[in-house]
């Protein structure tokens, strides 16, 4: 692969792609002090290592990347060389910016042909896994080469191809994140990890697609496995955890019922009240009153 660098505002090749801030490939033959200081990234960055060994600092953590590794940096995270410079070696990168308003809720923009749910899911999975060091994602090299070719040759259909390849890159990264996180073949362990993720983000409006993707499974298989293992469908299992947490909070004085409803992921206090009463026979307030007396 040859070196190249395309930058938004300077390179006419990027005119059709306002979301691509920068894309390039560099063979770095010598160290220049101060060439890569730590700074806050405004967009999502993906770095792919072709050759060499790179010592970086990502979100305050040291990170050593080797050939075939893919690294992503999220908007708002700090990133730079561990020693303030770029190490010797070859690497390719792309910076993508999407104006969604809130940087913490990044997702692919209108250029992407992913469905709205998939965009959100990909965004959420990357955001929930802030240390984006992915090992041995060799296929990424091919995507970068093709991206470069499409951008410079501008053959018919190149706009669609570039966007497809960018999608492919994000899909590859997301799948690798979930695979790397998932505890191999041990479904009980996978399920425990999911349980912990759900509990940590209980107010989030989880979809089945998102839950399945976060453990690296397709939805059909995921539904079947969860049902077999837990006896519940994924969404019912989630309601189960929501009410469990709500009960704990109702037994503590001080937090009002509406806050409990929203904290535990119900749309409204009405929705909370109906679901709670259906299962327990009590409204949340009655339940709280019953548990407020000394024994």
């Amino acid at each position: 692969m040859n070196q190249f660098l395309l930058v938004r505002g300077r390179s006419h090749e990027l005119l059709q792609f306002p979301h691509i801030v920068e894309i390039g490939l560099k063979k770095n033959a010598s160290i220049q002090f101060g060439s890569l200081p730590v700074s806050v990234s405004q967009c999502i960055r993906l770095y792919f290592i072709i050759d060499g060994r790179f010592e970086w600092e990502v979100a305050g953590r040291p990170c050593t990347a080797y050939p075939s590794d893919l690294l992503y940096v999220l908007p708002g995270q700090t990133f730079g060389g561990a020693n303030g410079y770029l190490d010797i070696g070859s690497l390719a990168w792309i910076f993508i910016e999407d104006a969604n308003g809130d940087a913490r809720r990044w997702k692919p923009g209108n250029w992407s042909s992913l469905s709205e749910i998939e965009k959100q899911t990909i965004g959420n999975i990357l955001m929930m896994n802030p240390f984006g060091h992915l090992c041995r994602v060799a296929d990424t090299g091919r995507i970068f080469t093709q991206l470069h070719t499409e951008l410079v040759t501008q053959e018919i259909g190149y706009r669609a191809r570039v966007n497809q390849l960018t999608d492919e890159l994000l899909i590859t990264a997301t799948r690798q994140v979930t695979r790397q996180n998932v505890a191999g073949r041990d479904f009980p362990k996978i399920f425990l990890q999911l349980e912990q993720k759900l509990r940590q983000n209980l107010s989030h409006q989880w979809t089945v697609e998102e839950m399945a993707a976060s453990v690296g499974m397709g939805t059909t298989l995921f539904n079947e496995r969860v049902k077999n293992f837990s006896g519940f469908s994924p969404l019912n299992y989630l309601i189960n955890i929501r009410i469990t947490e709500a009960i704990r909070l109702l037994k503590k004085p001080g937090i009002n019922v509406t806050d409990i409803a929203l904290d535990t992921g119900f749309y409204s206090s009405q929705h909370f009240s109906t679901t709670f009463k259906k299962l327990t026979g009590y409204t949340p307030s009655q339940f709280r009153k019953k548990n407020s007396e000394d024994i």
């Binding site: 955890i241 469990t244 009960i247 299962l279 327990t280």
Partner: peptide
């Protein structure tokens, strides 16, 4: 284990 979760799971399954 979470005692509230055991209770809610039991109630849910039984119901």
């Amino acid at each position: 284990q979470d005692p509230e979760q055991i209770f809610i799971t039991m109630l849910y399954v039984l119901k």
